[in-house]
Amino acid sequence: MYNLIGAGLIVIGAGLGLGKIGGSAMEAIARQPEAAGKIQTAMIIIGALVEGLAFGALILGK
């Protein structure tokens, strides 16, 4: 039971983290449009790593 609660907390944290990453990236692109490509690439890589962590938590939480 506790592993399901922990997995749920990780997934919620990952969702909040992805929202923060996206929001911060949009602010950074708005400030420096010429760096949009680098910012977007970094955002996608970090987002994929966070999402992988969330999927791992779901798989291990079963």
Rank of each mutant, 00 (worst) to 15 (best):
G23E: 14
A48R: 07
Q32D: 14
L53T: 01
G61A: 06
Q32E: 10
A14N: 12
G15L: 05
N3K: 10
K62L: 09
T41F: 11
G37R: 00
I39G: 04
G56S: 05
A30G: 11
V50Q: 12
I59M: 10
M1A: 15
L9G: 13
G56P: 09
G17A: 01
A30R: 03
I10V: 11
E51G: 12
A14W: 05
A7D: 05
I29P: 14
A42K: 08
G13C: 03
T41E: 07
M43E: 09
E51I: 02
A57I: 01
Y2W: 06
G13D: 09
S24P: 11
I59C: 04
E27L: 00
L18C: 11
E34K: 00
I46F: 15
S24A: 07
Y2N: 14
G13Y: 05
E34H: 01
A25M: 08
I5A: 15
A25L: 00
I12T: 04
M26P: 15
A7Q: 10
V11L: 12
G13T: 04
L16W: 13
F55M: 13
G6D: 14
A14L: 01
F55R: 03
I21V: 08
A54Q: 01
N3H: 08
I29F: 01
A36Q: 00
I45N: 07
V50K: 12
I45M: 06
A54P: 10
L9C: 05
V50Y: 13
A48K: 01
I29Y: 00
L49D: 09
L58T: 02
P33R: 01
E27K: 07
A28T: 01
L53S: 08
G8P: 07
E27S: 11
L9R: 15
I59T: 02
S24D: 15
K20R: 13
T41Q: 13
S24N: 15
I29T: 05
G19E: 11
K20T: 02
L49G: 03
